[in-house]
Lab assay of single mutants.
Amino acid sequence: MTYKLILNGKTLKGETTTEAVDAATAEKVFKQYANDNGVDGEWTYDDATKTFTVTE
């Protein structure tokens, strides 16, 4: 399945996607991606759209 991440960081905004077997796996990938890019904030997940959002 394809999962999407929306980044609403103070210095980085954008979107990315990943292929993962489940939401938990996608979340690990996205949290590492956000961490690597210096984005740390509040996370939400919408199962209907398979979209994670992180907002600083």
Rank of each mutant, 00 (worst) to 15 (best):
L5P: 01
M1F: 14
M1C: 12
E56Q: 11
A48M: 12
A20R: 03
F30R: 00
V29L: 09
V21L: 13
L5W: 02
N35P: 02
L7K: 01
K28P: 03
T44E: 10
V29K: 08
T11H: 15
T51K: 03
K4N: 06
T49H: 06
T51N: 02
D46C: 09
Y45W: 04
V21S: 13
A24T: 09
L12E: 06
V39A: 04
V21A: 13
T25V: 08
T11F: 14
L5K: 00
W43Y: 02
G41R: 01
E27Q: 10
D36V: 10
E19R: 11
A34V: 09
T16Q: 11
L7I: 15
V39W: 14
A20S: 06
T49N: 07
E19L: 13
E42K: 11
A34R: 01
V29G: 04
A23C: 12
L12C: 13
K10F: 11
K13L: 07
L12A: 08
V39I: 15
T11D: 13
Y45N: 00
V29P: 01
V54W: 03
V21W: 13
W43L: 03
E56P: 06
K31P: 00
D40W: 15
Y33F: 12
T44V: 11
T17N: 06
K31Q: 10
Q32G: 06
T17E: 09
W43A: 01
A48T: 15
F30A: 01
I6C: 05
L5Y: 02
I6T: 04
K13I: 10
Y3F: 14
T51S: 05
T55S: 07
Y3A: 01
T44L: 08
K28F: 09
T51G: 02
N37C: 11
A20D: 03
I6G: 02
Y33C: 04
Y3I: 02
I6A: 03
T11R: 10
G14M: 13
K4Q: 06
E42H: 13
Y3V: 02
G38P: 01
T18G: 03
E15V: 15
N37T: 07
D46W: 04
T17S: 11
N35H: 14
D22L: 04
E15F: 14
E56S: 08
G38Y: 06
N37W: 14
D36Y: 09
T49K: 06
L12I: 15
T53N: 05
G41D: 01
N8K: 13
T11M: 11
V21R: 09
N37V: 15
A34I: 06
E27L: 14
M1P: 10
Y45V: 01
V21K: 12
A24S: 12
W43H: 01
T17K: 08
T18L: 11
Q32L: 09
D40K: 14
G9D: 03
K31T: 05
T55G: 05
K13S: 10
D47Q: 08
Y3S: 01
F30Y: 02
G14E: 10
W43Q: 00
T17A: 08
A24C: 11
Q32C: 06
N35D: 08
G14T: 14
L12P: 04
A34N: 02
I6E: 04
D40R: 12
T18P: 01
T44R: 09
T2H: 08
N37R: 14
D47A: 14
D40I: 14
A48H: 10
G41Q: 02
D40E: 13
G41V: 02
N8C: 10
N35C: 10
A26G: 02
T55Y: 07
I6W: 04
D22T: 05
D36L: 12
A23F: 13
E56M: 07
T55K: 06
K50D: 02
G14H: 10
L12D: 05
L7M: 12
E15P: 04
A23R: 12
D36T: 08
V39C: 05
W43K: 00
N8Q: 10
I6Y: 06
G41L: 03
T55Q: 07
F52W: 07
T51W: 02
T51E: 04
M1I: 14
T25E: 15
W43T: 01
V39T: 04
Y45C: 01
T55L: 06
T51L: 05
K31D: 02
V29Q: 08
K28R: 13
D36M: 12
G41F: 03
T18F: 11
T18M: 11
D40V: 14
K4V: 11
T17G: 04
T11S: 14
V29I: 13
E19Q: 14
D47E: 15
E19N: 12
K10W: 10
A48I: 12
A24P: 09
N35M: 15
K4H: 14
A23Y: 14
A20K: 03
A26M: 01
D22H: 04
L7T: 05
V39S: 03
D22V: 03
G38I: 04
T16W: 15
Y3K: 01
T53S: 06
A24F: 11
K50A: 06
L5C: 08
A48P: 07
E19F: 15
T2W: 13
N8L: 14
D22S: 07
T49S: 09
Q32D: 07
Q32R: 11
K13W: 13
E19P: 05
D36I: 11
T11W: 13
D47F: 09
D47S: 13
K50E: 03
K10N: 11
E15L: 10
K31M: 08
D46F: 04
E19H: 12
T25W: 09
K4Y: 15
D47H: 08
Y3P: 01
K50G: 05
E42I: 14
A48Q: 12
T51A: 04
K10R: 12
E56W: 12
G9N: 04
D36C: 08
V21M: 13
W43V: 02
E56I: 09
T51I: 06
T16P: 03
E15W: 15
K28A: 13
D46E: 07
V54S: 02
E19K: 13
W43D: 00
Y45G: 00
N35K: 15
K31R: 15
